[in-house]
């Protein structure tokens, strides 16, 4: 039951933040900082994880496909599983680990330090000021990071499949380009946007409401908020992935 309440509260929270952003001044500067936090700083981890995911998939799928003499389908298998599933999901999980946890604890500390109250006394909408730019940045950064993850992953699959093992590189790339349709890419982007809004809203919500949600005050409350933020958003990503996949298929 409380899940329903939380879901409603988080939706209102995210909506308030998005709407609040557009009443802010200096939106571009704030958005720049948001993109730096959620996009630029997550780029290295996304690139690294994307590469290794692609490398492993190249190996695993090659040894599975070669049993059926279908190793020529490696490009298809790698590209589709990355674009449809692994890209959006792993990107979201990595951004939660990199930016979401930091955001939850930062907002938690700002709550405890009364900085959020201070904004209110200055007639500044704290939600629009603190959370708004990050949510808008999320809408920009998640599809970008997902696309980068997908492309690097597909390249990783090429490295193991064609360079290390003996799938013809022409066949690999040909299969990648032929098998992927716009519907697959679109589905991946939809997932990226939904995951982004969900995870960043949850992380911000947990941090912002540290005083109400955490069972301890002070430092322990902040660490609890950060942990809960990561756990909740990771679980939500996987659950939402199942739902969206069943709708898209």
């Amino acid at each position: 039951m409380s899940v329903v309440f939380d879901l409603g509260e988080i939706s209102l929270f995210g909506w308030g933040a998005l709407r609040g952003f557009f009443t802010q001044r200096g939106r571009l500067a704030k958005l720049t900082l948001g993109i730096h936090e959620i996009g630029v700083r997550c780029f290295p981890i996304i690139a690294t994880v994307g590469l290794f995911t692609g490398l492993v998939m190249g190996l695993q799928l090659y040894y599975t496909l070669v049993k059926f003499g279908a190793e020529s389908a490696l490009g298809t298998a790698v590209a589709l599983s990355l674009i449809r599933e692994l890209g959006p999901v792993l990107t979201a999980l990595m951004v939660v680990g990199q930016a979401g946890s930091a955001m939850a604890s930062e907002l938690g500390i700002q709550r405890n330090d009364e900085q959020i109250d201070a904004l209110q006394t200055m007639s500044i909408d704290p939600l629009g000021f603190l959370v708004g730019p990050r949510l808008v940045a999320t809408l920009i950064c998640f599809p970008i990071l997902t696309a980068i993850f997908d492309l690097i992953g597909i390249f990783g699959g090429y490295l193991t499949g064609s360079v290390l093992l003996n799938v013809d590189s022409g066949v690999y790339w040909n299969r990648v380009f032929e098998s992927v349709t716009w519907a697959d890419v679109q589905g991946g982007y939809i997932k990226a946007l939904v995951f982004g809004l969900l995870t960043i809203s949850i992380c911000a919500y947990r941090g912002y409401n540290t005083h109400r949600k955490a069972s301890f005050p002070g430092v322990r409350g902040v660490s609890e908020s950060a942990t809960r933020a990561v756990v909740w958003s990771s679980v939500t990503v996987l659950a939402a992935d199942y739902l969206i996949t069943s709708f898209l298929m």
Partner: peptide, 19 residues
């Protein structure tokens, strides 16, 4: 209170930990 923002606000608050 929220409407007052251009000329000056009625209340300011100085927090214990400065915030």
């Amino acid at each position: 209170r929220n409407a007052q923002s251009d000329a000056g606000v009625s209340f300011s608050y100085m927090f214990q930990n400065n915030a």
